[in-house]
Amino acid sequence: MNGGPPRAAKILVAGVGNLLLGDEGAGIHAVRELARQAPPGVDIVDAGTALGEIVGRLGGYRKLILVDAVEAGGAPGQIVRLEIRDENDLAAAPLPLSLHELGVAEALRQARLLGLLPPQVVLLGVQPARIAPGLKLSAAVARALPALVEAIRAEAAQPLI
């Protein structure tokens, strides 16, 4: 299949998460911060809780950088980088009851099936401290946010494979 439309930008940065659930929205906070001074050659998208809804926009890029809160067992605010070679690198979400409940792994699988998955996918995450209703980030994650944004800039500056 085609790999999507030709794009001026080579890299897509997608923030994933739920702004209403405290640290769960870290990915969105990060891409919003990044967008104040977007790096050249990079498109930025706020995917919210519905990466599956924007699968159609993933095509045509050489690299996808996902930014999300990640449960990696580390200290709150710790930043992790995960190269996603195939979707088995991510734990599958429990079977959804509706199409509104598809997780990141399912969205990436769909993108691959549709021939729209960029050849390189990197997940940049931050270990959350508190996932509960609320608009604010925890102190630990708020402190880590500038470092997360820097990590995105560094990732986007890497030579493309």
């Binding site: 979707e87 599958a92 979400a93 079977l95 959804p96 199409l99 598809l102 792994a105 399912e106 699988r109 769909q110 099936l113």
Partner: peptide, 9 residues
């Protein structure tokens, strides 16, 4: 179909 949602269950 493929073994992931929405093709399963």
């Amino acid at each position: 179909g493929p073994d992931f949602p929405p093709f399963v269950p």
